[in-house]
Every structure is written in C-alpha cells, then in structure tokens.
C-alpha cells in the first residue's frame, strides 16, 4: 500500500476520535481561563477581562474580597447538610421504589421525575410564592435555602440509587440467605455494601448541584449570600480574581475525588484478579 493511501486510511479510522477530542478540548477552554485568571494581577485597572501580569497574591490571600469566604463557608455548610439529608431520605425512597410493589408506584415515579423536568426558574419562583404566603412561619434565609436544596437534590439521588439497585444481582442475597444470614445481616453485609458506590455517587452529585445552584437559591435566600450569589453580584462590578482561586480549587478537588475512586476500583479489580 502506498504511504499516501496508508495515511488516508489512518485519517479515516481516527477522524471521529479526533473530532471527539476537539469537543473535549472545547469543554476545557473556560476552565483553562479560570485557572489562568487565578494568577492574574489586575493592578489598578478595572478591566478584569484581560490578563495583565502574573502574581501569586490571589492564592496566598484568597479571603481578601470582603464577604467571599463567608459566602464559600455558607455554600459548603448548606451543601453538606442538604447532601446528607437528601442522600438519606432519597436512598430510603429508592429502596422503597425498587424493592417493593405497592399502589401508586408509577405515580411516585412521575412525581420524582417532575423536579428534574421543571425549569429551575419555575421551581424557584413557586417555592418563593409558598414562602411568601407562609411568611409568618418562616423567613427567607439559611433554612429556606436548605429546604430548596434538599428538594431539588432528592430526585437526582433517588434516580441514581435506583439505577444501582435495579442493576443488582439478587442471587448474591439469595446465597446469603441460603447460608443462614437473617434479613438484617443480609442487608448490612451484602446489599448495602453493593449499593454504596451508587449512594456515594448520588451524594457527590447532590453536593455539586447544591454548591453550584444559583437560580433557585437567589430567589429564596433572603439576606444570605452563597458563593454563586457572591460571584453573580460581583460580576456586575467586576469580579475579584480570588473567585478564580475558589473555582480552580473546586475543580482540583473534584478531579482528585473522581480519579481517586477510579484508581481504587482498578486496584480492587487487580487484587481480585491476582
């Protein structure tokens, strides 16, 4: 085969992969900008949309902009609390839906699907309408944000855990029962460990949804300011470069967690194979 034909064949075989990788590169362009800008020294200039000169100041002094670290703390607090609550009650619901046959199951599935199918602005504004009519009982603030976050994380948790549960091989549980494990032992020693990766994945998803939410939070936050709200507010005047430090950190932490999980799986698989 002539070299030309060979090259042509190679191109034909790899064109889809190449295009796919291009799309992936496109997805990382804004991240690269966030990382780059975390080292930017805007100096006196008000133009925060241009890289001026290199500095480490943003990294050594991340809490410099007034109120930013407080906002990050609030987002972390709400994120953790909402994740724990949504993961627990969502996992329970997933077990109920997959493991039991009962009246109204398909109705329950529909209600669970709906929050994922509603635009955030509609969910946020309807919650606000409820909180306004109940303003004698509850004031907008930490707890209304918490309530909203658990609400929109729940469906995602239920769907994720359900998928894991539905894919479970119930022969393993049968085997445990055959070996005289009672229901409780079977659950905690077989079922739960097998579902755990799904639950952890759901928790990670819930946390990232909560930490990142702006539209619903902004409507229901009252006087509180979460990190996305801080960024949005700052964007009107010119963002402090330190928000890019937080963005970069979040990205790095997520990568470490996800890659760590993947590595753990590979090591386990290797240990089992040998």
């Amino acid at each position: 085969m002539s070299p030309l034909a060979r090259t042509w064949r190679w191109i034909k075989a790899h064109v889809v992969l190449g295009l796919g990788l291009l799309v992936l590169v496109y997805m990382f362009v804004p991240i690269a900008v966030v990382v780059l800008m975390s080292f930017n020294d805007p100096g006196k200039s008000k133009n925060v949309y241009k890289f001026r000169s290199f500095t480490l100041d943003n990294w050594t002094n991340p809490c410099h902009p007034a109120g930013m670290c407080h906002a990050v703390g609030l987002s972390l607090g709400i994120g953790l609390l909402a994740t724990v609550v949504a993961t627990i009650i969502g996992t329970m619901a997933a077990f109920g839906l997959v493991r039991h046959d009962f009246k109204g199951r398909s109705f329950a599935n529909t209600v669970i699907f709906l929050p994922m199918a509603s635009p955030e602005i509609v969910m946020g504004s309807s919650l606000l309408a409820l909180f306004i009519s109940g303003s004698k009982i509850i004031t907008l603030g930490f707890w209304t944000i918490f309530i909203a976050h658990v609400m929109f994380c729940l469906s995602f948790v239920i769907v994720t855990v359900k998928a894991r549960l539905a894919g479970l091989d119930d022969n393993l549980e049968q085997a445990a029962m055959d070996l005289y494990a009672n229901e409780r032992e079977t659950f905690w020693r077989i079922t739960f460990p097998l579902v755990l990766p799904g639950i952890l994945g759901a928790a990670l998803l819930a946390f990232s949804l909560s930490f990142d939410d702006f539209i619903i939070t902004n409507l229901n936050a009252g006087q509180e300011t979460t990190f996305p709200m801080f960024v949005y507010g700052a964007a009107q005047r010119g963002v402090p470069m330190q928000v890019n430090v937080i963005g970069t950190l979040m990205f790095l932490i997520a990568i470490v967690i996800v890659l760590g999980g993947e590595l753990n799986n590979r090591l386990k698989a290797r240990a089992l194979a040998s």
Binding site: M27, P30, V231, Y232, G247, M250, F251, V258
Partner: peptide
C-alpha cells in the same frame, strides 16, 4: 470534570 467549576464562573 469541567462542570465542577461553578456554572457562573464558566
């Protein structure tokens, strides 16, 4: 991965 950086920052 890119979607762990805040929506607004992106």
């Amino acid at each position: 991965a890119p979607f762990f950086t805040s929506f607004l920052l992106r």
